[in-house]
Structures are given as structure tokens and as C-alpha cells.
Design a protein around this nucleic acid. Structure first.
Lengths: 341, 341
DNA sequence: ATGAAAGCGCTAACAG
DNA sequence: CTGTTAGCGCTTTCAT
């Protein structure tokens, strides 16, 4: 028994395929309820499911969206996926999730593949700016796309972004309010815009408090735990600070490790603040104070924008505000118990 | 300027669309190199990309696969996704990743959606057995599917599984080898087959060492961190054990929290062993000893099986072996330093 | 209120 | 070696 098609339904119900198509698409106008019921019954009976591919071919709408993330193993992104997926489903779209593994050629490859698959739109999230070629190709192919959280300074393209500078600022403020003056920062890669913004916001807060951030207290990481661990270990061996701002939570984990091995107690001897508020972070002991971005909601919003762009040709930029989540890894410095620093 | 189609290429190159189709599909036989080159040049020039939807409609092969995971936020699953995706791409398939959020109706919904989208096959992973309705529907629709890591005792369906019993056994053996005799276990939900297997393997190891696992030392969790935390806290307050086996890493995290709050030191006073070896687990202090499953490879294998089933109609069951990863959270009991237990 | 027919972009016999 | 033709399963004018 082969796949049942609209023809089979039509024959079985004794109507034309046009009629079946009409009830499939809920075309209200003119059609006896009787006919409709009849068709519906047959559809029900044989458990008929229309072939979306065939539909798409004629409507030129595949009802599929693409999402490209740079690294699904970073717990930040599954949250984004969940948000994106839920929103897509709510609008009756399916989502093809692609993991570019931070490799440009993979990203390019997916872009091509998604286009071939005729997705109606693409949500692009990657560590940094789009390569020029990709950007051009994307525009040229006229397929709607939305940028997610990548530094696109001065760029007009619609998307959802986080106010990274504000986030860095909040982190700085928090540390200052706790009385810290000797502070270091582990950043992401230098060429990544988001990372730079977090740093500059942080620096701004310090400056406002008349504090400096010496060049040698700025460690350039890569958003990965292991590198941060190495960096922090080396640094903490040779320098005395009372607080560290890690530009993402993964790197904060690395700092935990380093501090642990050096016998430095958190938060008594060292306050740590992270960035992102990834889910598993609550497993850390002590619990990490961090700058939270509402990734799930950002994912939803991004897809909302994308669908809006698809259906109404208009687009937008929206910027989310990060929030400070105070937990246990930061501490008032005056209250340090018996440890001189 | 509208989307360029095979017709445009044909016109531009001065050949028939059949010829274009032939070069698109690398049909070697008979065709002057000259013609081929000419067509290729035109394709290149206008950056033509064939419409996969139209192709699928005639070939009845969409080159799309579906993957349904129960909870993308559990770090276990992104690894699976990565493996599955890489394997799929290697075979020129795309993957639609769906997150069922542990909700049956979502799973059903995705199943329908994937079928409508005409995926060539489905990789199904969820916490537990397929609902009977889903299973029936799946078989009825004759769409190839592969089961991933769900307890399917006595089931003949092809898929990729982990020898959970062996895993539990390894955990038990390890603890015993370290001299532990007072041991507790936090399991997953009672009705989940995998979870039961881990427990029974664990019990087997204890029994072989002539040790018992009293009923009240078996805590029934739900694979989530928070529940495990509550359970462990309550339990550790009232009972003295030197080791705990948590049936997944997330729950092990919960135990860490509980121990920390109770002032119990790991591993000096309490050894902990987990299950899964999820990526972020190395951020824990001390590093968690655990039973590892190679999720990435399992994901690859599962898709390999699926594609094989699609292309050769034959299927298979493969069982992976878990391995013990000794880190820092378990310790020889005799060497306990000055703490009486 | 319903149906016939054209056609979406492509592949696959079948001809030549 | 290349082109003609007939669909794939569906939606959409345009008739009736």
C-alpha cells in the first residue's frame, strides 16, 4: 500500500481534489457543510497527511526555518534553540538546527544547504560578524534572515542583540559596590565585538569609580573553560587581586579550577563574576554570581522577528538588557574574615 | 529578478533541461565534456542552486532526517545532536532537530510534522519507551526509524543502546575496590528502564562483593539536579554512608550541593560517582568520577544505522559499552584522613 | 458550491 | 549524446 495522496481522498469521498484541497486549507467560502464533513471523515479514516513538499513547491513557502548556531555544546545555545523552536512551532514552522562548530566553511555549507532546502528564513548566530561573502550571498539570495547576538556595530540589519556593554558595566558596578579595588578581567577573543563591549562596559564602571584596570590585569581568553583555567592559574600565582570578572560563565569555571588548585578560597579570598547565566552554572560551589541574558526569550524574539520579516517584509532590531544575578561567588571585601590581602 | 530555475540554466546554456539535470546529478554516461562544461559555467555564473523540494517530490527522497530529543537542555543531548548531525551531513542529509521537552503530545506533534515534511527517516530518543500509539503510527507510516538509548527490553527494533547494566556494575565495582561498604544510590524514575538497569547492575556488583544495598539507601530521583539535591540533603542528614552512586551526572551535581551545605567533604568524607560524563562536568570541584557514554559516537552510529536502513532496508541493533572515568570525587576509604565514619 | 486544468521545479523513462 | 514528455502531490485560477 503506497502513500495516500489527495487523489485517494478525493476518489474515496467522491469529490474533486480541488474540494479536498479546500477543506485542507480551511477555505471557508462556499462549500456545503455536508461535503466538508464527508471529506473530513475520509481524511480521518485513512489518517491522511498532506505532503508539505508538494505544497511548498506551489506556494513557495516551505514553512521551514533554519537556525545556525556556532557551537551547540556551549550550554548557552541549547537555550537559544529551545526558545527559537518553541516560537517557530507556535507559528507552525519547523526549525532546522545547524551547528557550525565555529567553522566558517561549515557555516557557508549550511547556508547553501538551507537555501536548497528552501527554508523561508534563517536565524544566524555565530561568535562574530558574518563573513563578507556570506553576508553578500545572503542578501543576494533575498532570503530573509535575522542576526542573533553578534556584534554588528553600526550595522542596520535586523536582529536581536544584548547590551553587552551594559552587562560589563553591571559586573563592574557590582564588584565596586562590594569594595573591590584590585580587579582582573578575562575577556573573550580580541576580535570579537561582544567580548570587547563587555570589557569596555566593565572598564567604564571602574573609571567612574576612579579605579583603573591595568593592562596586565586584562587577560585575553577565548570563551573556553580550559584556556581560562591556564590563564587564571598563571595570573593568580603572580598577582594579588580580590576579584575577577570572567566574560562568560565557562571561563568563570576555569577560574574556579585555578583558584581551587592554588588554595584560594571563593569568595573569601577571591570574588568571581561571570556572564551568561548558563543553566548548569548552579552546580558550581559556591554558586556563581553572574550577568544573565535571557537566552530563551531572546531565541523566541529572534524567530518572532524572522517570521514577521517573512510575512510582512518589515524588520527590526531589538536589544535585550542583561541583569545582575547575585549568588555566592562575590563578597563584600571589608567583611573578609581574617585574611589579609 | 525571480529565483533562477533549471529552465533558466537550460535556456542560457542552449541545452535542454534534461541535460542540465544530468550534469546536476553527475550522470556520467554519454555527454560531451564540452556540453557539461558549458552548463557548469552557466550554473557557476548565476550561482544556481537546485530546488531540493522539487527534486524530493519526484525522487521521493527528501534528504532530510528528523531527530527527536527529550530535552535539549540536558547537556547529554547536544552531544548526541552533534554526532547525529555530523554523520548526517557526511551522507548529504540535513537534520531537523526537535525537542520534545519530555512531553508526549509534543513528541506526537513532531512525529506528524516530520512526516508531513517527508523526512526520509527519524531518530527517536526519549527518556523512556515509545508510547504504543506512537509506535504503531510510526510502523504504519512505514517511515524508517531508529531508537536511541531507550530501554526497549525484548524489543526487536533496531537502534543504538548503552549497556546500562554494565555501567551500573562498573560504578559498583569501583566503589567496592575503593573499600566502600556503606553506599547509597540515587536512581532515575522508577518506570524508566535505563534507570532500573543502572541500579540493577550496581546491585549486582555489590552482591558479588557480599554487600547489600538496603531499601532505604536507594533514593528515587528523576535525573534532575534539584530533586537529587533535596533527596541527598535529607538523606545525608540522617544516614552515614561513605559513597553515593548517582545515576546521572546532573544528579551528582545535586549531591555535591547537599554535601557542601552539610559540610561534608568530597571525596574525603564522601565519594561520589556519576553517570554520563556530560561535558561541563569537568567544571565541578573536585572533578567528578563517572561512567562515561560516548554520546557523540552513539549519535553518529545511530544516524549511520538510520541511513543504512533507508538505503538498504536492513537494520540492526548496536549496544555501546560504557567506561569508568576515574577523577577526583572518589577515594580509597582506608586512606581517609582523620575522619571517623 | 464544485470541478478541470495548468503548473510549481525537477527527474526519469523513452526516443531519437 | 541529447531532447521530449510525463508526472511527483499539491494549490490556484477560471469555469460552470
Amino acid at each position: 500500500m503506497d502513500k495516500v495522496t489527495i487523489k485517494d481522498i478525493a476518489r474515496e469521498a467522491g469529490v474533486s481534489i480541488t474540494t479536498v484541497s479546500r477543506v485542507l486549507n480551511n477555505k471557508e467560502e462556499g462549500m456545503s457543510n455536508e461535503t466538508r464533513e464527508k471529506v473530513l471523515r475520509v481524511i480521518e479514516k485513512v489518517n491522511y497527511q498532506p505532503n508539505q513538499l508538494a505544497r511548498s513547491l506551489v506556494t513557495k513557502r516551505s514553512k521551514m526555518l533554519g537556525l545556525i548556531v556556532p557551537n551547540i555544546s556551549n550550554p548557552f545555545f541549547p537555550e537559544l534553540c529551545r526558545g527559537a523552536e518553541d516560537e517557530a512551532n507556535d507559528h507552525n514552522y519547523s526549525l532546522i538546527i545547524c551547528n557550525s562548530d565555529d567553522q566558517l566553511h561549515k557555516e557557508e555549507n549550511y547556508l547553501r544547504l538551507l537555501k536548497e532546502q528552501q527554508v523561508d528564513g534563517i536565524l544566524l548566530s555565530s561568535k562574530d560578524q558574518l563573513s563578507e561573502t556570506n553576508k553578500m550571498q545572503l542578501r543576494e539570495s533575498k532570503i530573509p534572515f535575522i542576526i542573533f547576538d553578534r556584534g554588528e556595530e553600526g550595522n542596520q540589519h535586523s536582529g536581536v542583540f544584548l547590551d553587552n556593554e551594559k552587562g560589563g558595566y553591571l559586573a563592574g558596578q557590582h564588584l565596586i559596590a562590594l569594595g573591590h579595588t584590585q580587579i582582573a578581567c578575562i575577556t573573550g577573543p580580541k576580535n570579537i565585538h561582544n567580548s570587547q563591549k563587555r570589557l569596555s562596559g566593565f572598564q567604564l564602571a571602574l573609571k567612574e569609580a576612579a579605579l583603573g584596570l591595568p593592562e596586565e590585569f586584562i587577560l585575553t581568553g577565548d570563551f573556553k573553560m580550559d584556556t581560562a583555567y591556564q590563564l587564571a592559574k598563571e595570573f593568580l600565582k603572580n598577582n594579588r587581586v580580590t576579584a575577577i570578572f570572567a566574560c562568560n560563565d565557562l571561563m568563570a569555571c576555569g577560574v574556579y579550577q585555578a583558584a581551587h588548585e592554588l588554595g584560594i578560597r571563593i569568595p573569601e579570598q577571591l570574588s568571581i563574576i561571570g556572564f551568561d547565566d548558563i543553566p548548569l552554572i548552579t552546580a558550581l560551589i559556591p554558586k556563581l554570581t553572574t550577568i544573565r541574558q535571557n537566552t530563551y526569550e531572546m531565541g523566541r524574539k529572534a524567530i518572532e522577528l524572522l517570521i514577521h520579516q517573512i510575512e510582512h517584509e518589515s524588520s527590526e532590531r531589538v536589544v535585550f538588557e542583561p541583569t545582575l544575578i547575585v549568588r555566592e561567588s562575590t563578597k563584600q571585601i571589608n567583611k573578609v574574615g581574617g585574611v589579609d590581602i
